[in-house]
Write a protein that binds this DNA or RNA. Structure first.
Length: 122
DNA sequence: CCGTTGACGTCGG
DNA sequence: ACCGACGCCAACG
């Protein structure tokens, strides 16, 4: 492949979905976080578009939230997104996630470290 | 190939 | 806290 810069169309999309699938239950990541993991730190918006369009059922897109812990969108059913999050143990208040920084998933985090539920907020 | 579309992010008022 | 403006980037028609 002659050093092709040929990024197959949809390659970014594929990386985004893969990154989202890595988010453990009860944890969240921002659109910007996912964009960075997918190799385009400033493509938060594009990430939103991809998650909006994808029909991949195994991708937990409800774990992707907006900056600062805002819930963000979910195909118009933001209440559904909140419900799914709460169901996994992520508390919400209004359109915001409580203890956002505490449950925020970071890719650098060691795997196996109580990923599902945060032991304590503080 | 170019213009449009947005489940975003950041800053300013 | 709320709203508007601008930037940024990939998918789509």
């Amino acid at each position: 492949m002659s050093g092709s810069t040929t990024r197959g169309a949809g390659d970014f999309e594929r990386r985004v979905l893969a990154a989202v699938r890595r988010i453990p239950p009860g944890r969240v990541a921002t659109y910007g976080d996912i964009a960075a993991l997918a190799g385009a730190p400033r493509a938060a918006r594009a990430v939103g578009n991809i998650l909006r369009r994808t029909k991949d059922p195994v991708t937990p897109c409800h774990r992707v939230v907006a900056a600062g812990g805002a819930i963000g969108g979910y195909g118009g059913s933001e209440s559904m997104k909140r419900e799914l999050l709460r169901r996994e143990g992520a508390e919400t208040r209004g359109s915001r996630i409580t203890h956002f920084e505490a449950i925020r998933w970071r890719a650098a985090e060691r795997r196996g470290a109580s990923s599902s539920v945060v032991r304590r907020y503080g």
